[in-house]
Design a protein around this nucleic acid. Sequence first.
DNA 1: ATCGCCTCCTGCGCGC
DNA 2: TGCGCGCAGGAGGCGA
Length: 271
Amino acid sequence: MPELPEVETTLRGIQPYLQNQCIKNIIVRDRRLRWPVQADLDQTMSGALVKELKRRSKYIFVITSHGSLIIHLGMSGSLRVVDADLQAGKHDHVDLVLSSGKAVRFHDPRRFGCVLWTDEDLALHPLIKHLGPEPLSSDFDGELLYSRSRGRQLAVKNFIMDAKVVVGVGNIYASESLFRAGIDPRRSAGKISKKRYIELAKKIRETLIRSIELGGTTLRDFVNPEGAPGYFEQTLLVYGRTNQLCQQCDSAIRQVVLGQRSSFYCPTCQR
DNA sequence: ATCGCCTCCTGCGCGC
DNA sequence: TGCGCGCAGGAGGCGA
């Protein structure tokens, strides 16, 4: 399940194969993603030169001479670098075929992801323009969490997962960051002190950076674009550990549902 | 404005 | 062994 570290790992994996390369053609096998893939995508982008790749939130931008692609991996999406003539499998919906003989293959069993084309300013795109700051940028800190949370009643876990507040904090990393900051995920966002938000912002940043260093979390079948797994899963302290003992205090880890999402916390370490 | 719920979709693991 | 069920979740959209 790609979260920000998995998206960053993916971007870094495909970057060397795409940068300054020519997109020979695009093969669309199934247009039915979260939003339909544009019918004439191949005609629009054939022959495009890839200028640069960028990430914003969990979106990957492929910026070319013939407009940009906005790619989101949804829940189950992946991008792999393959030899262009490798037989496509089930759920291999889109190939960016490169002049080099390689292809970047978009695979997404649940089809929650998207591959959208746009010729407009990416920062002004409807999917992008409302997004809050990047958690790894200097625009994000505890002061921001504190000021944005005043008067808010929702649970702090839901608050930090709101992309208008800060992007890229998904379900796994929200639980992990709150554990590391010692904050109960159910606590009302508006009632947490500035001091605690400063600690939380620090832990969000540290947790994401550490996961990127380890190549992301391999849950289900995440692998980087060259086929290697991520190793952050081995460092998860609460996520998915219901009834297991907390590594800090031996209490049993609890699972609750917040905002339709499973959430994990230690009843002793988190207050 | 805020917040919680619904929805899209398929694969997997579980119980029977 | 096979079947049916519940769960997983990113994030837009909607209703209260």
